[in-house]
C-alpha cells in the first residue's frame, strides 16, 4: 500500500478533452462530499468539543474553556504519553526485526509457495483480534500452557509473563506485525534481484550486500510499514487492558475511559486532540527525515 502515486506520462494529459475531464470531476464530487461530511467535519467537532464542558447531567456542551487542556498538562499524563510512545516504538522495532526476515525468506526463497505463505500470514489477522488476544492471556498465565511447558522442561517455575509491559508490547506486535510484513514483502518482490547478485560479486559478503543493496532498495516499504504499525499501536487499548499490569495504562485506555465510565466527553476530546497534535509533529519530523533519505537514493 505504501507507494508513491504513479504518474502518467506527460503526453497523455494533453490529449484529454475537456468533456472527459468534467466527467472525472463529477466522479470526484460525491466521495469528496462524503469525506468532508463524515471525516473532516468529525475532526472539527472533536477539536471544538475539546474546549467544551458538561452540563449538570453530564451532557457535553460546546464552550471556550481551555481547562481540559490545562488538566492534561500534568506529570501523570505526560508520563503516560511517553510510556505509550515507548511501547509503540518498541512495537515498531520488534516488528521490523520479525517482519524483515520473514518477508525476505518468503519473497526471495518462497518459490511457488509464496502466495500460500503470505495467505497463511494474512488469514489469522482476520480472525478476531480480541479472541486472539484473549487466547494469549490464557497461554501466558502463570499456570498456562507456556509456563507448564517450561516447568516440565525444568526451565522455570511460574514466570510472570502476563501483566507486564512486555506482554502488552508482545500483544501489539502480534496484532499489527502483518502491516509491516506486507509492504516489506511487496518492496522485496518488486526489487530487481540481479542487484543482489551484482552485490554478491562485488562485496563477496552476503551481509554487506544486504546492508548496501537490499536494505536501501526496500526503504519505501520499510518506512511505510513502520507507520502502519506505529499508528494503531499508539492508539490501542485492548492489549493493555487484557495483557497489561498495574502500570501499563496507555493513551487509548485513557481516552476510552473518559467516553465510557467517565461521562466526560469534552475531556476525552481534549485527550484525542492532544494525541493528534503530538502525532502530527512526530509525523512531520518522520516524513522530513524519510523523504530526505529517499532522495539520497
Amino acid at each position: 500500500m505504501a507507494a508513491e502515486a504513479p504518474h502518467a506520462p506527460p503526453g497523455v494529459q494533453r490529449r484529454r478533452s475537456s468533456q472527459h475531464t468534467r466527467m472525472w470531476g463529477y466522479l470526484l464530487a460525491l466521495p469528496t462530499v462524503w469525506m468532508v461530511t463524515f471525516f473532516i467535519s468529525s475532526m472539527v467537532i472533536v477539536v471544538l468539543l475539546s474546549f467544551g464542558t458538561t452540563t449538570r447531567d453530564g451532557f457535553p456542551v460546546f464552550g471556550t474553556n481551555s481547562g481540559n487542556f490545562s488538566a492534561l498538562w500534568d506529570e501523570v499524563y505526560l508520563r503516560l504519553f511517553v510510556r505509550s510512545l515507548l511501547y509503540a516504538l518498541a512495537t515498531v522495532a520488534l516488528s521490523v526485526l520479525i517482519a524483515y526476515p520473514v518477508a525476505y525468506a518468503i519473497a526471495l526463497h518462497g518459490g511457488r509457495y509464496k502466495n500460500a505463505l503470505i495467505a497463511a500470514i494474512v488469514v489469522p489477522f482476520f480472525a478476531s483480534y480480541l479472541i486472539r488476544m484473549y487466547a494469549w492471556k490464557a497461554l501466558l498465565s502463570d499456570d498456562g500452557l507456556l509456563n507448564s511447558g517450561l516447568r516440565k522442561a525444568g526451565l522455570g517455575d511460574g514466570i510472570s509473563f502476563l501483566n507486564t509491559p512486555w506482554a502488552v508490547i508482545g500483544g501489539l506486535v502480534y496484532g499489527f506485525v502483518v502491516f509491516m510484513i506486507l509492504p516489506v514483502y511487496a518492496s522485496l518482490e518488486r526489487m530487481d534481484t540481479s542487484l543482489i547478485e551484482a552485490g554478491n560479486d562485488l562485496y563477496h559478503s552476503p551481509l554487506r550486500t544486504f546492508f548496501t543493496v537490499t536494505l536501501p532498495a526496500t526503504r519505501a516499504g520499510l518506512y511505510g510499514g513502520m507507520l502502519l504499525v506505529f499508528l494503531p499501536a499508539l492508539g490501542d487499548f485492548v492489549s493493555a487492558q487484557l495483557l497489561g499490569g498495574s502500570s501499563t495504562f496507555m493513551i487509548g485506555n485513557l481516552i476510552q475511559q473518559q467516553f465510557v465510565e467517565g461521562q466526560n466527553w469534552p475531556l476525552g476530546s481534549a485527550m484525542t486532540v492532544a494525541m493528534m497534535a503530538a502525532l502530527t509533529v512526530l509525523m512531520v519530523v518522520y516524513l522530513r527525515a524519510t523523504s530526505t533519505k529517499a532522495r539520497e537514493l
Binding site: 473532516i40 472539527v44 468539543l49 447531567d57 451532557f59 457535553p60 456542551v61 460546546f62 471556550t64
Partner: peptide, 26 residues
C-alpha cells in the same frame, strides 16, 4: 487549507459558547 477550514469552524463555534451539543431533556 485544512487549517483554514478548521479555523473558520472554530470561529463559528466561539460565537456560540454554551450552545448545547446534545439536547438535554431527561
Amino acid at each position: 487549507r485544512t487549517l483554514l477550514t478548521g479555523g473558520l469552524a472554530l470561529g463559528a463555534a466561539a460565537a456560540l459558547p454554551g450552545c448545547a451539543y446534545i439536547r438535554d431533556d431527561v
